[in-house]
Simulated assay, not measured.
Amino acid sequence: MDARDFITTGMSAERTLVVPVERTVGHFVSGMPFVYATPMMILEMEMASGDAIRSALQPGWVTVGTEVDIRHLAAALVGATVRTTAKVVAVERRVIRFEVEAFEGPRKLGEGRHARGLVNVEMFNKRLGA
Rank of each mutant, 00 (worst) to 15 (best):
P33D: 09
P33N: 09
P33V: 11
P33E: 10
F34M: 11
F34H: 10
V35A: 13
V35Q: 11
Y36G: 01
Y36W: 14
Y36I: 04
Y36A: 04
A37E: 11
A37D: 04
A37V: 10
T38M: 12
T38Y: 06
T38S: 15
P39V: 02
P39N: 09
M40I: 01
M40W: 09
M40S: 07
I42W: 00
L43V: 00
E44F: 04
E44R: 00
M45L: 09
M45C: 05
E46P: 01
E46Y: 02
A48S: 14
A48W: 09
A48E: 12
S49Q: 03
S49G: 15
S49R: 02
S49I: 03
G50C: 01
G50P: 01
D51C: 11
D51T: 05
A52E: 04
A52P: 12
A52V: 06
I53Y: 01
I53F: 02
R54C: 01
R54S: 10
R54N: 08
R54L: 13
S55K: 13
A56G: 02
A56V: 03
L57V: 02
Q58E: 11
Q58R: 15
Q58H: 09
Q58M: 12
G60H: 09
G60R: 08
G60K: 00
G60V: 06
G60D: 08
W61V: 15
W61P: 01
V62N: 11
V62M: 08
T63W: 15
T63F: 05
V64C: 10
V64F: 06
G65I: 00
T66E: 03
T66N: 00
T66P: 01
E67A: 03
E67Q: 06
V68L: 05
V68S: 14
V68N: 09
D69H: 13
D69Y: 02
D69G: 09
D69W: 05
R71P: 08
R71S: 15
H72K: 07
L73V: 10
L73P: 12
A74Q: 14
A74K: 15
A74N: 02
A74Y: 10
A75N: 07
A75F: 03
A75L: 10
L77Y: 01
L77N: 15
L77R: 14
V78G: 13
V78P: 12
G79S: 12
G79R: 12
G79T: 06
G79L: 11
A80I: 12
T81M: 12
T81A: 09
T81C: 10
V82E: 05
V82Q: 13
R83H: 02
R83V: 15
R83E: 05
R83C: 01
T84N: 07
T84G: 14
